[in-house]
Write a protein that binds this DNA or RNA. Structure first.
Length: 229
DNA sequence: GGCCAGGACACCA
DNA sequence: TGGTGTCATGGC
């Protein structure tokens, strides 16, 4: 699956652990703590996770700002909105018609199955929460893991485009690796600590923003640049 | 004007 | 199971 698969499993895990520790330490030394996620409540984290899908955070933040200014940053507020009103408010986030349906689907789910309680919905074991999130239309693996990690504070590693891009460009994983395999790659090697998972993911996104664009000087990405320095 | 951004899903072979 | 098209605004 990933490179180095010929080694013994124990040795491979130790090697991976060593690599991830080195990457994390260097990123942290270079960039410092990122202190994600920029949201005030778990519900806001969830909205952000949906609205930022394939979208720059700034645009998602603009949509959340619209909801906040109208006093609609709550399950009840969202459920009381018509489809067109919702679309107009979240328009800056892009894909606004689809995202309006996704946000509504999530709120409907919690309203129907959890009596509208976000707190109760989030308060249980990690796998149960993750599995249920994945049954909701519009919530895929990355969004589910973001919600588990940043809203429920459970250690589910979030794999995103930058994680994949950086690790495949360094030859640490195969390009064909799946989301779940890459998630397992991290979760087998790292201590299951929420803060560690949050910071690692945030640092990878940060370094991605800074140096790992698809164009220009991104190959090799800056991670390799400062590794070689 | 073109490329890209903190994806998910339907559809097809 | 894997590849491809679609959704769409805003910044650079």
């Amino acid at each position: 699956m990933w490179n180095g698969a010929g080694r013994g499993r124990t040795g491979l895990r130790a090697k991976r652990k060593e690599l991830l520790r080195e990457v994390y330490d260097r990123l942290m030394a270079d960039l410092g703590p990122q202190k994600w996620w920029p949201a005030e409540t778990p519900f806001e984290v969830i909205l952000g996770a949906i609205l930022t899908q394939n979208t720059a955070w700034k645009n998602a933040a603009a949509a959340i700002g619209n909801l906040r200014r109208n006093g609609l940053l709550s399950l009840e507020g969202i459920l009381g909105l018509g489809a067109q009103e919702m679309e107009a408010l979240i328009r800056p986030s892009g894909f606004y018609r689809q995202k309006a349906k996704k946000v509504k689907a999530f709120c409907d789910h919690v309203g129907t199955n959890w009596n509208g309680s976000i707190e109760e919905f989030l308060s249980r074991d990690m796998e149960s929460l993750r599995t249920e999130l994945l049954t909701i239309r519009g919530i895929g693996r990355e969004t589910a893991d973001s919600i588990v990690l940043y809203a429920a504070f459970q250690p589910s590693f979030v794999v995103d485009t930058y994680t994949y891009r950086i690790f495949s460009r360094h030859g640490w994983i195969e390009e064909s690796v799946s989301y779940d395999d890459l998630r397992e790659y991290f979760m087998e090697a790292l201590d299951p600590k929420v803060q560690l998972f949050q910071e690692f993911h945030a640092l990878l996104v940060r370094i991605g923003h800074l140096y790992c664009r698809k164009t220009a000087f991104c190959q090799p990405c800056s991670l390799r640049v400062f590794f070689d320095a």
